[in-house]
Computed example of a mutant assay.
Amino acid sequence: MRMIAAALLMLPTLVPVPTRAEEIAQVGVDWIGNDIVIEAIADPDVGGVTCHLAYFERSVLDRLSQGNWFEDPSNSAIQCARTGTIDVGRLQPGSPQDVFSEGRSLLFKSLRVKRIYDAENRVLVYLAHASELSEGSAKMSMSTVPLLAEDTGGGPAR
């Protein structure tokens, strides 16, 4: 039992969190206090890209009435935009990289944002998805940011 408790305490240090999100709004969706939370996430490795992530957050009343006290739904939406000059020089094409991760249950579910650099098409792809220990989730959202000729490190523009 002590081994399990120690492992659970170490869990946050074992899972790297690449960046933090800044909450910019909460939108109330019903009378019991459920909200949609919107956060801004600046890409820490690229610069010049900010993603806005929206997800559902259950109220205390909803948690009491529905059970499943420690878990929020996996639904999310993402939209990313150019906010400055983009430097893709350090990115590996086609290799998904973590940008953001946030727990959606007490232990085993998280909401993640990954970046994929599509060098051939000169596009950054951002994927928001749920990650669960026991089973995967088909709930996802995707956004793309086209790269311009002045963006560095990605080779010549077409």
Results as ranks from 00 to 15, higher is better:
Q92N: 02
I78Y: 06
P73G: 07
E102S: 13
P93F: 12
V15S: 09
L106P: 01
D45W: 11
D43N: 07
K114S: 15
Q79L: 14
E120T: 06
R82N: 00
D87F: 09
N68E: 10
N121L: 14
Q26M: 12
D118M: 04
W31I: 14
R82F: 00
N75W: 13
R58F: 06
R20Q: 12
Q79E: 15
R112P: 02
T85H: 15
T50M: 00
V37I: 04
S105M: 11
S65P: 04
V49E: 13
R58A: 11
L91F: 02
C80E: 02
R63G: 09
P12W: 14
S95N: 08
P12N: 13
V29F: 08
Q92Y: 08
I86H: 07
A21T: 03
G28S: 13
G67T: 04
V113I: 11
D45E: 15
L124W: 03
N68K: 05
D72I: 03
D98A: 14
D62L: 07
L14V: 01
W69R: 03
T50I: 00
P73Q: 09
G47P: 01
V29S: 07
P18Y: 10
T85V: 14
A81W: 07
D35W: 05
I86G: 08
W69M: 05
E39Y: 05
R58I: 01
Y55F: 13
S59L: 02
V88G: 02
A77S: 10
F70E: 08
S59Y: 06
S95L: 13
S110N: 08
A77L: 04
R82H: 05
V49P: 00
I86W: 09
P73N: 06
A21W: 02
T19R: 05
G67Q: 01
A81R: 13
R63H: 08
S74K: 10
